[in-house]
Design a protein around this nucleic acid. Sequence first.
DNA 1: TTGTGGACCTGGGTGC
DNA 2: TGCACCCAGGTCCACA
Length: 286
Amino acid sequence: MPELPEVEVVRHGVDVHVTGRLVRSVEVLHPRAIRRHLPGASDFAGRLTGRRVTAMRRRGKYLWAELSGGDAMLAHLGMSGQLLVQPEGAPDEKHLRVRFRFDDGGPELRFVDQRTFGGFSMGELVEVDGTVLPAPIAHIGRDPMDPRFDPAAAVRALRRKRTELKRALLDQTLVSGIGNIYADEALWRARVHWAKPTDRIGPAKAAEVLTAATEVMTEALGAGGTSFDALYVNVNGQSGYFDRSLAVYGQEGRPCRRCGRPIRREPFMNRSSFSCPRCQPRPTAR
DNA sequence: TTGTGGACCTGGGTGC
DNA sequence: TGCACCCAGGTCCACA
């Protein structure tokens, strides 16, 4: 599932292959892929055609193409979205949703998305706290790889919440880029249970969790991201290999690398959370 | 105002 | 073999 490291790998790939090129045509093959662009498919295609991509940017799990003329095409990969660079005429992928062709006749950009949670929209660029980004994501917090990320402010924001720690970590308005996988990995590294109430966490432990999240995502980026199946690949269709380094996520029943206890899996927000019962004891009741 | 829980969505895997 | 069901999870939204 694409979280910050995977999205950054994709952003870099798209940047290399697409920045500087002029869009010749856009083909929307599934309406859900542009459901956040309310004026519809023809408006989306019309606003992109004839525009040049001037840069590829990212914040958290969102990425966007800055366009000649000033606005941007915003993208989110959702759970299974892929941006692939393919030669024109290559066979269509089964779940091809949007195709971008360029005026140089070179490789096209394809959005392939099995579960249709990802998609695109057009957005005006606005300045928020000294950074220019698309208006629809003005509320998204800086991610830990942002040079202007303020760890102390993130710790304060985290501790102000009155919820479970993992839920706060997944709140993209506090700190962006963290998803289910790296939240579990960061919590294991920091030896804290996902259900720990945020208002009962000291500033040092909160900082430790955020540092662990930054470290694990940096390592994952160096490994090309985490791939469990064909749902995450880079723009060339290649998988990352950080899944081999995961300590708890998807490791139910396997021994903890620190203490040997079997990793447990617990339901969390209609999904799963993985942790070590000894290293990450459940918080005591208030 | 803030926190919580469910819906959305598809296809692979599993059990019967 | 075919069918039903479960599961994956990021984001949004209704509700408390």
